[in-house]
Design a protein around this nucleic acid. Structure first.
Lengths: 260, 260
DNA sequence: TACATCTAACGTTAAAACGTGTGAAGTTGT
DNA sequence: ACAACTTCACACGTTTTAACGTTAGATGTA
């Protein structure tokens, strides 16, 4: 993987800053400037951005951390995580897509990895509520793009809410691909209600449903159940998944595929 | 206005290339390469893009022009037109917006000019089907952004079709701002059916409706009627509008405002 | 098959965007 | 009212992106 120096540095620092705030609860601007060896101005800018994405709360003199659920879900700031695995999963999932068909994808980073490969199976109709995927796919010839409307959430860079759910319910695609932040032997989970509602609607809108998760999501739970695993025709995990966990899913007759 | 050399050159050339094709009906790749003093490769790239936006049809050896209705509507390639006027209109229209309210804007270049000024009246809820406006407004704090879904049309860089109309009909905003390609004394017009359907739905979704048109649109007609002018609470035109034309609108009791 | 045309990959260059700091101007809390 | 804090406007160096040409290989056409 290539080493982007400059462009990553800011992201890394903001990520670290968020973690610093999580650990200490709060911190002053000057303290952060000292710790991260940047100017006060830069700290302000970093905090502004973190606040925009809902990770911290700014007040005069410093900032404090937000509820950890937001932090957790805000994988946007840890999107370097499991990049390899997501790539492998994406390649595998794309192999399941039939050219000429229609697919719906959600607003996960996994979906983004998949979106990058979708031109390989053009012509294709793609439906999504994920702005980054829309940005990516709009200029691609051979891809018929349909956007799901809704209220824009900076935290996820996607459209959610009633508008989105309504839009999903008005559609049906040959395949639906979703990713969730945790799965047990029986259910898929996600910690945020609004996202859960959209994902549920999506699962109901697909002729075939694919659940794509990297191995770190296995054997975990989160606040809300998205759907029982029976709803998914295929579950794709990366090769890092413990054989034992995979076996347990298979014992329950779930169709698990390992992305190699 | 600043002179962007490099970035504009390509656009200008493609625009000229499209016009060349309109005049001559068709042309070979090598001919175009010679006329525009660029490599054959660049001609191919230009034609690919023009074809993606529906302006020309490529075939082996050259390309031919498409129906002029597409060309006309594809203002994207003439967006340098009436920039000053649109700016003035945009500033005026923004003055009509009440902070804290909700506005819906369409996928016209005028709407884009307006979008650039919307941060000035934040906080605001903005609803649109125009991808460029979405790109612009998504990162702006203080703007609650709602996207209208639908099928993406590269020609307009916006979302249209049944999905979009449904989304619009599910909403109601304090203000709706639309622009059309022609207006007579009685009606607003547009040449493309799909766009007409969306604009009509928009007009029906606003508590107050604003029609924003530059003076070149006055006293003209196009294929489809969008709506009778009575539907609009305000009609904003730039100062270049002939006094006589404005007077005729006012004689019909339309509320015309001149953007200075 | 032979020839023309097209595309894909790469390198070069110029422009735009980004990240950052500085100092001045504006705000806020006490 | 004052001191600390925040924002603004600008400048500067770096990175990233975009346009374009060249070449080599693929694809289509006669």
């Amino acid at each position: 993987m290539k080493s982007r120096q400059h462009s990553d540095r800011g992201v890394v620092r903001r990520q670290a800053m968020a973690e610093h705030l999580m650990r200490h609860g709060s911190a002053s601007v000057s303290e952060l400037a000292e710790v991260f060896r940047v100017s006060v101005m830069t700290v302000h800018r970093d905090l502004d951005e973190l606040e925009f994405h809902g990770m911290v709360r700014k007040y005069r003199g410093g900032a404090s951390a937000q509820a950890s659920s937001v932090f957790e879900s805000n994988i946007a700031y840890r999107l370097t995580a499991q990049t390899e695995e997501k790539e492998a999963i994406a390649r595998h999932v794309v192999g399941l897509i039939e050219p000429g068909s229609s697919v719906m994808i959600d607003d996960s980073t996994t979906a983004l990895a998949i979106a990058r490969h979708l031109s390989e199976v053009a012509p294709l109709t793609v439906v999504t509520n994920f702005l980054e995927a829309i940005r990516l796919l709009a200029p691609v010839p051979g891809i018929r793009l349909m956007a799901l409307g809704g209220e824009y959430h900076p935290t996820h860079d996607s459209f959610l809410g009633v508008g989105c759910v309504d839009s999903v319910q008005a559609m049906n695609t040959d395949m639906v691909i979703v990713s969730t932040s945790a799965i047990s032997d029986r259910h898929a989970f996600h910690q945020e209600q609004e996202i859960v509602l959209v994902k549920r609607a999506m699962v109901a809108a697909g002729t075939r449903c694919v659940l794509a998760v990297d191995h770190t999501k296995l054997d975990r739970v989160a606040l809300h159940r998205v759907a029982p695993l029976e709803k998914f025709d295929v579950i794709v995990v990366d090769a890092g998944a413990p054989a034992e966990a995979v076996q347990r899913l298979r014992d329950r007759r779930h169709n698990v595929e390992i992305a190699g």
